[in-house]
Amino acid sequence: SPEEIKAKALDLLNKKLHRANKFGQDQADIDSLQRQINRVEKFGVDLNSKLAEELGLV
Protein backbone atom coordinates (compact mmCIF):
# COMPACT_ATOMS: atom_id res chain seq x y z
CA SER A 1 0.00 0.00 0.00
CA PRO A 2 1.16 3.60 -0.49
CA GLU A 3 1.34 4.12 3.29
CA GLU A 4 3.67 1.13 3.75
CA ILE A 5 5.86 2.28 0.87
CA LYS A 6 6.05 5.76 2.39
CA ALA A 7 7.00 4.31 5.80
CA LYS A 8 9.75 2.14 4.28
CA ALA A 9 11.09 5.09 2.29
CA LEU A 10 11.15 7.39 5.32
CA ASP A 11 12.89 4.68 7.36
CA LEU A 12 15.57 4.24 4.69
CA LEU A 13 16.09 7.99 4.23
CA ASN A 14 16.30 8.62 7.98
CA LYS A 15 18.96 5.89 8.27
CA LYS A 16 20.92 7.52 5.45
CA LEU A 17 20.57 10.93 7.12
CA HIS A 18 21.75 9.54 10.45
CA ARG A 19 24.79 7.93 8.77
CA ALA A 20 25.57 11.14 6.88
CA ASN A 21 25.56 13.12 10.13
CA LYS A 22 27.50 10.45 12.02
CA PHE A 23 30.29 10.20 9.46
CA GLY A 24 30.43 13.90 8.61
CA GLN A 25 29.40 13.91 4.97
CA ASP A 26 29.10 17.14 3.00
CA GLN A 27 26.36 19.51 4.10
CA ALA A 28 25.03 19.39 0.52
CA ASP A 29 24.46 15.62 0.85
CA ILE A 30 22.71 16.09 4.18
CA ASP A 31 20.51 18.86 2.73
CA SER A 32 19.67 16.64 -0.24
CA LEU A 33 18.56 13.81 2.06
CA GLN A 34 16.46 16.24 4.10
CA ARG A 35 14.76 17.50 0.93
CA GLN A 36 14.05 13.89 -0.12
CA ILE A 37 12.48 13.17 3.27
CA ASN A 38 10.29 16.28 3.01
CA ARG A 39 9.24 15.34 -0.53
CA VAL A 40 8.29 11.78 0.50
CA GLU A 41 6.31 13.08 3.50
CA LYS A 42 4.33 15.45 1.27
CA PHE A 43 3.89 13.45 -1.93
CA GLY A 44 4.79 9.82 -1.23
CA VAL A 45 7.22 7.79 -3.33
CA ASP A 46 7.39 8.19 -7.11
CA LEU A 47 7.65 4.67 -8.54
CA ASN A 48 9.96 5.96 -11.30
CA SER A 49 12.51 7.34 -8.84
CA LYS A 50 15.86 5.97 -7.76
CA LEU A 51 14.42 5.67 -4.24
CA ALA A 52 11.78 3.22 -5.52
CA GLU A 53 14.58 1.15 -7.07
CA GLU A 54 16.47 1.10 -3.77
CA LEU A 55 13.33 -0.13 -2.00
CA GLY A 56 12.92 -2.89 -4.59
CA LEU A 57 9.60 -1.57 -5.93
CA VAL A 58 10.67 -1.49 -9.57
Rank of each mutant, 00 (worst) to 15 (best):
S49H: 03
E3L: 08
V58T: 13
N14T: 12
N48T: 11
K16S: 05
D46G: 04
E54S: 06
Q34T: 11
G24N: 09
N14W: 13
G24R: 04
E4H: 11
A20M: 13
P2A: 13
S1P: 07
Q36W: 06
L57G: 03
S49K: 01
I30M: 05
K22P: 03
Q36M: 13
F23R: 11
L17G: 00
L10P: 01
E41N: 09
K42H: 11
Q27T: 09
N48Y: 06
L33E: 00
N48V: 05
D31W: 01
Q25E: 11
R35G: 09
G24D: 07
L33H: 01
Q34M: 14
Q34I: 15
V40F: 01
R35M: 11
E41P: 01
Q27S: 09
D46C: 09
Q34F: 04
F23W: 12
N14M: 13
F43L: 08
A9R: 00
D26F: 06
L55D: 01
H18D: 15
H18C: 14
I37H: 01
R19A: 15
I37L: 06
K50Y: 09
E54I: 09
D29E: 15
N14F: 12
Q36L: 15
N21C: 15
G56T: 04
D31A: 10
D29G: 09
R39G: 09
Q34Y: 06
G44H: 00
G56S: 05
N38D: 15
E3A: 12
A7V: 11
H18L: 12
K50S: 12
A7G: 07
K16E: 06
K22A: 14
L57Q: 03
K16N: 03
S32T: 12
Q34H: 11
D26Q: 09
L51V: 05
Q34K: 14
K6V: 09
Q36S: 07
E41S: 07
F23H: 12
L17Q: 02
G24M: 07
R19M: 14
A7H: 10
H18P: 01
G44S: 01
K16T: 03
A28P: 05
L13D: 00
S32V: 09
A9W: 04
E54L: 09
I30T: 04
S32H: 12
I37P: 00
L13A: 00
E3K: 07
I30V: 09
L33A: 00
D11S: 05
V40K: 00
E54K: 04
Q34W: 05
V45N: 01
K15R: 10
S32L: 14
K42Y: 06
N14S: 09
D11H: 06
D46F: 03
K22R: 11
S1K: 08
A52N: 03
A7S: 10
V40S: 01
R39D: 15
I5S: 05
K6L: 08
N38E: 15
E54A: 08
K16V: 04
G44I: 01
S32Q: 12
S32M: 15
L51Q: 02
Q36D: 09
P2N: 12
D11I: 05
Q25D: 12
D46T: 05
Q25K: 12
V58F: 05
S1Y: 11
A28E: 10
K42P: 01
E41A: 06
E4R: 08
F43M: 09
A28I: 09
K6R: 12
E4Y: 12
D26G: 11
H18F: 06
Q36N: 05
L12F: 14
L12N: 05
K15C: 15
D31C: 07
L47E: 07
A9H: 02
P2V: 11
N21V: 15
E54T: 06
R39C: 15
K42A: 12
V40Y: 00
R35C: 13
D11E: 14
L17S: 01
D46E: 10
H18A: 15
L13Q: 00
K6A: 06
L10S: 01
L33D: 00
N14K: 14
K42I: 12
V45W: 01
E53P: 01
L47K: 04
E4F: 11
K22D: 09
A20K: 04
K22S: 11
K22L: 15
E3Q: 10
D29H: 14
R39N: 14
V40W: 03
N21F: 06
D29L: 15
A52M: 08
V40N: 01
N48M: 10
N38R: 14
R19S: 13
E53Q: 13
D26H: 10
F23P: 06
S49C: 04
E4N: 10
A20E: 04
L55C: 01
V40L: 03
D11P: 00
L10I: 10
D26A: 11
R35Q: 12
E54F: 08
A7W: 06
L33C: 02
K50C: 11
A7C: 11
I30E: 02
N38F: 03
F43R: 04
A52Q: 03
R39T: 13
D29Y: 15
E54C: 09
I5C: 11
D46L: 05
D11T: 03
I5G: 03
R19E: 15
D31H: 06
E41Y: 04
K8I: 11
F43T: 04
K22E: 14
K6N: 06
Q36H: 06
N21T: 14
L55Q: 01
A28H: 11
D31L: 06
Q27P: 11
A9N: 00
K8Y: 04
G44T: 00
S32K: 13
L47M: 13
N48R: 09
K8Q: 10
N38H: 09
D26Y: 05
R35I: 09
I30Y: 04
R19D: 15
N21D: 11
E53R: 11
A20Y: 10
V40I: 11
A9M: 07
L55M: 09
A20C: 05
N38Y: 05
Q27Y: 09
L51I: 07
D46M: 05
S32R: 14
A7F: 08
N14I: 13
R39V: 13
F43Q: 07
G24F: 07
L17F: 03
E54W: 13
D31S: 06
K22N: 10
K50N: 08
S49M: 03
R35N: 12
S49V: 02
E3P: 06
E53Y: 13
D31M: 04
L55W: 02
L47Y: 08
L55K: 00
A28N: 10
V40T: 06
V40M: 02
P2S: 11
G44E: 01
L55A: 02
I5A: 08
K6D: 03
A9V: 07
Q36C: 15
N14Q: 10
G56F: 06
N48F: 08
E4G: 09
A52L: 08
G24C: 10
L13E: 00
R19W: 15
L17P: 01
K6I: 09
E54R: 05
L55T: 02
K16G: 03
R35D: 14
D11A: 08
R39E: 15
D46W: 02
A9C: 05
A28Y: 10
S32C: 15
N38V: 14
E41R: 09
E41W: 02
D29W: 15
A7R: 13
G44Q: 01
R39I: 14
R39F: 15
I37V: 03
R19V: 13
L55H: 01
Q36T: 09
Q27H: 08
L17V: 04
V58W: 04
L47S: 06
K8N: 06
N38I: 13
A9Y: 05
K8R: 14
N21Q: 15
G56H: 06
L47G: 05
E41D: 06
A28S: 12
K8L: 13
A20D: 03
L47A: 07
D46K: 04
K16M: 13
L33F: 03
V40G: 01
R19Q: 14
L47V: 09
G56I: 04
D26N: 13
R35E: 15
L57Y: 08
L55N: 01
L51H: 02
L13R: 00
E54G: 03
V58N: 11
A28G: 11
N21M: 15
D26K: 09
R19I: 14
L13H: 00
A28R: 10
A7P: 01
E3H: 08
S1T: 14
L10Q: 02
H18Y: 08
A28Q: 11
A9P: 00
D11W: 04
G24K: 05
L51F: 07
K8H: 07
G24Y: 06
